[in-house]
Measured scan of single mutants.
Amino acid sequence: GTEDLKEEAKKALKKGDKERAKRALKKAGLSEDQIKKFIKEVL
């Protein structure tokens, strides 16, 4: 589900894998702006 994808994105970001995080967030249905915001909040 969406929460799982967001968790996956957080883990990817902590490993420095932004591309993987972006893919997971796109799958979760987030827009580009939401993805940028999510990444900023996590990092």
Rank of each mutant, 00 (worst) to 15 (best):
K14S: 10
E3A: 11
R23K: 12
G29S: 02
K37D: 15
E7V: 08
A9F: 04
S31T: 13
D33G: 07
K26V: 13
I35A: 04
Q34M: 09
I35N: 01
E7Y: 06
F38V: 07
G16H: 05
I39D: 02
K36T: 11
K10I: 14
K11W: 04
R23F: 04
L43E: 09
G29N: 04
A28W: 03
R20E: 13
E7G: 06
L43S: 06
G29M: 03
A21V: 04
D4F: 11
K18G: 10
I39H: 01
K14I: 14
K15M: 15
E8P: 01
K10A: 08
G29L: 02
I35F: 01
K27I: 09
E8Q: 10
A9V: 08
L13S: 01
E3P: 08
G1C: 14
D33K: 09
K15N: 14
E41A: 12
D4C: 13
K11D: 12
T2I: 14
T2S: 11
K11Y: 04
Q34E: 15
K6E: 09
A12Q: 06
L25E: 00
K36W: 06
K22R: 13
G1I: 13
K14Q: 13
K14Y: 11
K6G: 03
K10Y: 08
K40R: 10
T2P: 12
R20G: 15
D4L: 12
D4M: 12
E3N: 11
E19P: 06
E8C: 07
L5V: 05
F38G: 02
K10H: 06
L5N: 04
K14P: 01
A9Q: 01
E7W: 07
Q34Y: 05
K18C: 14
L13D: 01
D17F: 07
K26G: 07
D4W: 14
K27D: 12
K26R: 15
K26Q: 14
K22A: 11
G29Q: 03
K10E: 07
D17I: 02
R20L: 13
K37A: 15
K11F: 03
K26C: 06
K37M: 10
G1D: 13
K37L: 08
S31Y: 02
K14F: 10
F38C: 05
D33A: 11
R23T: 11
D4V: 11
L43A: 07
L13R: 01
E7D: 10
D17E: 08
K40G: 11
K40I: 13
V42H: 11
L13W: 05
K40E: 15
V42D: 03
